[in-house]
Design a protein around this nucleic acid. Structure first.
Lengths: 212, 212
DNA sequence: TATCGTTTAAAACATACGTTTAGAAAGCAG
DNA sequence: CTGCTTTCTAAACGTATGTTTTAAACGATA
């Protein structure tokens, strides 16, 4: 029951790949359907054929890797929890923050696959959400809820309010690094050079952990 | 030599006020000239008459309050420096971070004047800059350079690279709070309620200081 | 009042936009 | 092959975009 053509169902994926990258670099309104389709070497009407509308394409770009992203984060969380339980101790703040930040930052440095584009797309989608697609970030936010009990366990003096504020700040550090990593050299007058993904991650984790 | 009309030179200011607010809520491309002019109750061609182009308007919105913003930050810095010198001590990290964060956060909470809109406009302009207006954020960045020596003084073990990375993270905390302050309640499932500007500022300063 | 520079107004410009349509081309089943 | 569904193409639709043009209205000066 599968119908293929020369370029076949690659076309749909190709549109997703291209628009993921374009939406990562510009706003929703600034990226036209024509730019997408010509960059993907498909017909203009392909976007409406496969995704119904431009907005449908945007949401499809989000959905494609959303579960994978969250799965990775929760995987690291469970890994840290398991290791801690095995050693008869509570999960450390560093492990928690590490589980939150490692997937997006490692994705950001991944150049060959589209993961880098996706993570930058996500950071932008957060601002786009204000106008239209509120539900886009709901899935993203749900993941962080899972971390709250562990933060409470390791530091019972913190209220839920305190924890959410810190999670909010961590997201700020994360999003800003995603959006402006390539401009850190310009900010610092070339004092800061490009680092490995581990170095960047460790800097962020260190900064955010101290905030707890 | 002044030529006024009924609405007179208010028109220009009115356009700036309105587009400051609109650009704060949507991207550059998503806000049309017609939306601006009709919201400002001026003729469509007024934007091109006063500012040459849509992009000229955008830059004019930025320029209008840029110096005031930076002046306030540097004022707080000098104030802290003077107080520290008088007491024969080095400026504390808390004072430095406070000088960086207080103006934008206090502006954010200022509702009557357009300062709240401007600060949200600024946070958005940072992302818009990627495509076109690189020079927009140059002035913003220069201010932070002034803080670097004081950070070095209070903690000589830090390299310039370390300091700029921390400034980068502070900017992340700041921008994210500016962009998503109204959604902190949604993130936390109403665990976090709206606070005073001082409470929010203190939370941010505390989080960022620990990172040093 | 007449004049000049400034500001507003209405209309049109050319282009770009997202979307729709109708039909051709292609793949699979019988 | 013949039917049938899926995929792709080209063209057009209607509307929205930023900008320009032309002229009218206005305020101050002389």
């Amino acid at each position: 029951m599968k119908y293929k053509k020369s370029a076949g169902q690659n076309a749909k994926e190709r549109i997703l790949d291209v628009s993921e990258k374009l939406f990562a670099e510009g706003s929703f309104a600034s990226v036209s359907v024509r730019t997408v389709t010509s960059a993907a070497n498909v017909n203009l009407s392909a976007v409406n054929y496969y995704f119904g509308s431009k907005k449908g394409l945007f949401q499809a770009v989000y959905v494609r890797r959303a579960t994978l992203m969250n799965h990775e984060r929760l995987g690291l969380l469970q890994e840290a929890v398991g290791k801690a339980r095995q050693e008869g101790r509570a999960v450390s703040v560093r492990e928690l923050v590490n589980a939150m930040l490692t997937p997006p930052i490692f994705w950001l440095y991944e150049k060959e696959k589209g993961l880098s584009g996706y993570i930058r797309f996500l950071a932008r989608a957060y601002l786009e959400a204000a106008s239209d697609m509120e539900n886009v970030l709901s899935q993203e936010v749900d993941v962080f809820d899972k971390f709250v009990p562990y933060f409470q366990e390791v530091n019972p003096s913190l209220t839920v309010e305190d924890i959410y504020w810190r999670i909010h700040f961590i997201m700020g550090v994360m999003h800003h690094t995603i959006n402006h990593l390539d401009r850190i050299g310009l900010l610092s007058h070339t004092a800061c050079s490009v680092e490995t993904r581990e170095q960047t991650r460790d800097r962020m984790v260190a900064f955010c952990c101290e905030g707890f």
